[in-house]
Amino acid sequence: MSTGKQIADAAIANSAIPAPDGTARVKQGAFKSLMYGALALAILGLVLLLGDVFNDGAGKISPELFTNQPSKIRPETSGFQSALIGTVYLMGIVAFLVVPLGVATAIYLEEYADRTKWWNRLVEVNIQNLAGVPSVVYGILGLAFIVRGPLSLGRTIVAGGITLALLVLPVVIIVAREAIRAVPPSIREGSLALGATKWQTIWKQVLPGSIAGIATGVILALSRAIGETAPLLILGAAISPRINPSLDNEVLTAMPLQIFNWTRDSEVDKFLPLAAAAILVLMVVLLMMNSLAIFLRNRYEQKW
């Protein structure tokens, strides 16, 4: 036994990673210093930017900002009610579309698709590629096929919601697939061994085990959609409309569009505080959405 232990200790000693020499330590220290310096510089820039926005917009946040309609000539009474309602409509339509489509596609690709078939591999490759396509391209697609073309929905809130749903759908599919894949195969095998069908196994075991990751992915996808401006501009969204969007009128607007309009106004000095206030409101919403995603992940994530 002692001879075997000596041989094992000698093997461990011989396979140990040698300690870095003086030159390697200097290089590692320099790299860490550059990394931490770049991180500190980025954080400092962010803090300064947020401080400037807060200094300009904090005094403008009031109930009237949420209840008044935009005005191009009276900044003291201008608000963003129509843009806020448009954002709520858009996020509702996006969630209504991407949750069932994204989860159903992820279930098919992970649980049913035969990876030896060329069409399933083609679908997977296209989903991966579509996740990296610029948002402007989705705006062009929405203008050609949704606002005009086959669907011809016009410049409506529904057309904007469908376009943004197409934008974030690949992200939801990818995240949902990762969450489903994280469920151990033994859970599926045990359920099937007890007599459950494949769909019962997915519905009762796989989806409950992956719900935390799916919910996190959906919320983060909505967080991306809520800040998109370029696709809506290409669709011909209204700038500072004085009527609220609805499902039966052609008024398409959102918070990022209103901020964009205020920052490019000819009297930008008068409207800049309103834009800063709207940025603060949008940032608070995004922070709440990301905090909810973190809470759901920590609360319902299962340790297998």
Results as ranks from 00 to 15, higher is better:
45 G>V: 03
220 L>N: 02
298 N>A: 12
142 G>D: 05
127 I>P: 01
225 A>I: 03
57 G>V: 06
267 E>G: 12
114 D>F: 03
298 N>I: 07
157 I>K: 01
6 Q>C: 08
124 E>V: 06
241 P>G: 05
240 S>L: 13
35 M>F: 04
196 A>C: 10
171 V>E: 12
15 S>N: 03
190 G>I: 04
186 S>R: 15
163 T>M: 07
75 P>D: 05
260 F>W: 03
291 S>K: 09
155 R>N: 15
187 I>L: 13
71 S>L: 06
303 K>A: 14
160 G>Y: 04
291 S>Y: 15
39 L>K: 00
247 L>P: 13
181 R>M: 13
278 A>I: 01
87 T>S: 15
97 L>C: 11
84 L>D: 00
249 N>L: 05
78 S>K: 02
21 D>L: 02
67 T>V: 07
224 R>E: 09
89 Y>C: 07
207 L>M: 03
40 A>I: 10
104 A>C: 14
218 V>P: 00
261 N>W: 06
50 L>I: 13
247 L>C: 01
67 T>D: 02
175 V>Y: 14
131 A>N: 04
196 A>H: 03
217 G>R: 00
206 V>H: 11
259 I>E: 10
243 I>F: 04
84 L>I: 14
217 G>I: 06
233 L>V: 14
48 L>Q: 14
56 D>M: 09
33 S>P: 04
60 K>M: 09
139 G>D: 09
99 V>D: 09
186 S>A: 11
124 E>M: 05
119 W>Q: 07
267 E>H: 10
276 A>H: 11
49 L>F: 15
252 L>N: 00
134 P>W: 05
54 F>A: 13
230 A>F: 01
217 G>L: 00
240 S>H: 12
7 I>N: 06
88 V>R: 02
164 L>E: 05
112 Y>L: 13
54 F>N: 00
228 E>F: 02
75 P>C: 08
84 L>Q: 07
115 R>L: 10
202 I>T: 14
217 G>K: 01
165 A>D: 08
251 V>M: 04
114 D>S: 09
53 V>T: 12
105 T>S: 14
220 L>E: 03
300 Y>A: 05
34 L>C: 04
7 I>L: 08
42 A>N: 10
140 I>R: 04
293 A>P: 13
34 L>Y: 02
122 L>W: 07
176 A>I: 05
